[in-house]
C-alpha cells in the first residue's frame, strides 16, 4: 500500500482531532496524532488487515526545546505481510512541575518495552502502564535525562558522578 493510501485510510477512521497533521519527506509520510489517542491509533494500524503493521521497528524520542509542546515520540512501523513502512509521531507537552506522560504501547508490540525504557531515561518521558519501568542503560543512581537539549554534554559532578556515592567497597 502506498504511503498516501495509508494516510487516507487512517484519516477515514480517525478524525482531525486525532490526526493532527501529516507530513511527507522523500516519499515517506508521517502522521502526528494526539498523544492521548496513541493506543487506539497503534492498535488500528496493527489489526487492520490492509495495514497489518505487525512489526515495530523503532521507538524514539525527540526534544524540540524550546518549542511547545516540547517532546515528540516517533514510532517506526513495518508490515512484513504487505512490505510497507509507516511513521507515527505524537507531541507531548511538558506541564510545569510534572513529567511528560504518554501511554505505553508495550501491550500492542512487546518489543516497545526496551525502546520505551531507553526513551524514558534519556528524555524523562513517563510511559503510563509500562510493565517494567526501570532504567535500561544509565546507572541506577542517576536522576538526570542526558538527551534533553538543556543537559550539559559533559554532565556535572553532582548529577553524573563516576561512581555511585558510598558504593560499599567497589
Amino acid at each position: 500500500m502506498k504511503q498516501e493510501e495509508i494516510v487516507k485510510k487512517l484519516s477515514g477512521v480517525f478524525g482531525p482531532d486525532v490526526i493532527q497533521s501529516t507530513t511527507e519527506f522523500r516519499g515517506e509520510a508521517a502522521v502526528t496524532v494526539a498523544a492521548d489517542r496513541i493506543l487506539e491509533v497503534c492498535r488500528f494500524l496493527k489489526d487492520d488487515p490492509d495495514l497489518s503493521f505487525a512489526f515495530l521497528s523503532f521507538v524514539g524520542g525527540v526534544d524540540w526545546y524550546p518549542q511547545v509542546p516540547r517532546f515528540e515520540m516517533v514510532y517506526q512501523l513495518y508490515s512484513v505481510k504487505h512490505r510497507h513502512r509507516f511513521r507515527v509521531k505524537a507531541r507531548i507537552d511538558e506541564k510545569p512541575g510534572a513529567d511528560p506522560v504518554i501511554d505505553s504501547i508495550t501491550e500492542i508490540w512487546p518489543t516497545a518495552n526496551w525502546h520505551e525504557r531507553e526513551t524514558a531515561e534519556m528524555f524523562g518521558i513517563v510511559f503510563r502502564n509500562h510493565p517494567d519501568p526501570r532504567k535500561l542503560l544509565l546507572p541506577d543512581n542517576w536522576k538526570v535525562h542526558p538527551l534533553r537539549k538543556d543537559f550539559p554534554v559533559i554532565g556535572t559532578e553532582e548529577d553524573t558522578p563516576d561512581l555511585p556515592k558510598r558504593a560499599g567497597g567497589s
Partner: peptide, 13 residues
C-alpha cells in the same frame, strides 16, 4: 563507561 567503572574496580580488587 561510568556504568562499567564499579565492575572494573571490583575486578581489579
Amino acid at each position: 563507561s561510568k556504568k562499567m567503572l564499579p565492575a572494573v574496580l571490583r575486578i581489579y580488587e
